[in-house]
Write a protein that binds this DNA or RNA. Structure first.
Lengths: 341, 341
DNA sequence: TTGAAAGCGCTAACAG
DNA sequence: CTGTTAGCGCTTTCAA
């Protein structure tokens, strides 16, 4: 039991050849006698030889592996991004090593270390909600290890980035709510040190200002992506002396939970409160009323980030790249107070 | 730019010591002069030395890494399992390398190869829905590489396994529907070469038999976990000459989509059709009517599988272990035709 | 307490 | 076309 894996040396000995010849045969070089090559390949197959990637990596000083750090796998947005990443990586023949920071700065830092010491060829990162510093990424850049941020990006670091037009789309979403006659629009914001969250809030308040509506602190919920507190937030909104007539939620799950609580409290949607989600999960179509949302192309973002990264890995001298992916407002019943026509 | 990482050799040269001495200092051995050790450690820190895991792994013939193969990351059940796996792995100081088979046998086989040649210390696998053979796992076992299946297990392979009491819980679920007066219970089945799916179907038909209800092929939908066909399945059920009065869905998302289509067709839930889901996602509470479901402890399964695996990695001579995790029926409105009291 | 040398599995430069 | 040799970064005997 527990047989040692077959090595190139074993094959060489059995065939009375040298290691290098065997290596050449297996690698598929031209400068080798076809017959010798056949013999080697044959035996290798028979012995179920598998090259030791470890040795190969050590030799070539690269691992053919992309390291990925995301906040959480149970977060569907990131799960879908990973899908996109893996598709691109597969096509490029690269492996993917995924770590989750659990939305913690410290864990993120640890992930970084462990990926680094695994000698990944490059890194794809969406920072945690806690991460309000960027110092831990500096050494990566200094060492010239390709690094691409996606969605939860780090500004002013000079790294490549993929993100969506958060400000614009939040502007659009808010304007849509205004167009439906909403005047007191509550907004679930994320941590304001995150570029994404800041931009969303910006888009929201810009839209209000454009339409001469006041931006009220009391309507802005600093949710920090805490999905376990949605009920608390909903109760707060309901209890306000001047109840909001719309809520722009931080994601669809929060939106759906909010809808549920509103409905239980006897509020009609969208008539009393319009609800707008974020991410456009499948589920949006199946709740009642159907949830309007922002189509946030997770898979495309992952794929784009992976493409850029692989490019940087293959061509060390490229300049950092920024790619902006378009989101799209998807209007359904939960925000349609005024019939479409 | 692109500075080469500092190696033990660099430090040795700078300090006029030998590689081995530096190694000893960094490893923290006792047989070294404290002063020398200090100097080394100091310089290492200053130079931001990080050991090359690759070299270490090659030397020690192990990688401290667990390989994981799951069908899909976007599948919440598996996403949650991965959470459990990572928690346990972190505590044990092991890394995790995740691959997804995309529910394809071929990809699964490729994943296996790539993890194997990355020389992972052990494997955690939930097989794809397509996988109806087990031959690709044989070499793993023969080589004595620890392997634990979870949820989507492989029988008759003599590997360790973690799974839930699928037959029992499906029996319970079905019996619950029967207790509510349902007589024509439709059942969404998975691929019958999967142990899990077969057991669920078994539990379903056992319950029917126990209560003298016929097991009808026409009520069994062979959904193969195809979530893109739910609408088609729903239409089929609705169009049946004798419409079913209950549906036991393969997961909550399918259940919720079914509910949606039923409702649109004017059917009342649970009055006309009772709906029972599987997995007990958060979402179940927020749809209308609230969805009854089976609590399927994904995280616990992942954690248990990881525990067993790590045990096997650390103690090579252990016998294969089977662990069964209990599921739980969670009754909500979607199956309650008869008020609780 | 330290150094020299071997070796993990593989590839590549250089001879032959 | 094939073999010899060196070396990737590290640990670990064995000597000194």
């Amino acid at each position: 039991m527990d047989k040692k894996p077959v090595t190139i040396k074993d094959i060489a000995q059995m065939l009375g050849l040298s290691k290098s010849t065997v290596s050449r045969a297996l690698i598929g070089r031209s400068d080798i006698h076809p017959e010798t090559k056949n013999k080697v390949v044959e035996l290798a197959k028979q012995l179920k030889y598998e090259p030791n990637t470890l040795a190969l990596n050590l030799k070539q000083q690269k691992t053919n592996t992309i390291g990925v750090i995301i906040p959480e796998t149970i977060n569907r947005f990131f799960a879908r991004s990973v899908g996109g990443i893996q598709r691109v990586a597969d096509m490029a023949g690269m492996n993917v090593m995924i770590c989750q920071s659990n939305e913690s700065y410290l864990t993120e830092k640890n992930n970084l270390h462990s990926l680094l010491s695994s000698r990944v060829d490059g890194l794809l990162v969406a920072i945690s909600r806690e991460t309000d510093r960027t110092d831990h990424f500096r050494p990566i850049l200094e060492r010239g290890i390709p690094l691409v941020f996606f969605d939860r990006i780090c500004e002013n670091l000079g790294a490549s980035q993929v993100f969506t037009d958060n400000a614009e789309i939040s502007f659009q979403g808010t304007e849509h709510l205004i167009s439906q006659g909403c005047k007191r629009i509550a907004f679930m914001a994320g941590p304001q040190h995150l570029f994404t969250s800041r931009n969303r809030l910006q888009g929201y308040s810009d839209a209000l200002k454009k339409h001469n509506l006041p931006v009220q602190e009391s309507l802005i919920i600093h949710s920090q992506y805490r999905t376990n507190k949605v009920e608390e937030f909903a109760r707060y909104l309901i209890s306000m002396p001047q109840r909001p007539d719309a809520i722009f939620a931080i994601n669809d799950y929060a939106a759906i939970e909010m809808m549920h609580i509103f409905k239980k409290s006897g509020l009609r949607i969208p008539h009393d409160v319009a609800v707008l989600g974020f991410n456009n999960e499948n589920m949006c179509q199946f709740v009642e009323p159907a949830l309007s949302s922002i189509d946030h192309p997770a898979k495309d973002m992952g794929a784009a980030a992976a493409e850029i990264l692989i490019n940087h890995i293959r061509h060390q001298d490229l300049k950092p790249e920024q790619r902006i992916i378009k989101s799209k407002l998807v209007i359904r019943e939960s925000t349609l107070k005024i019939p479409a026509f």
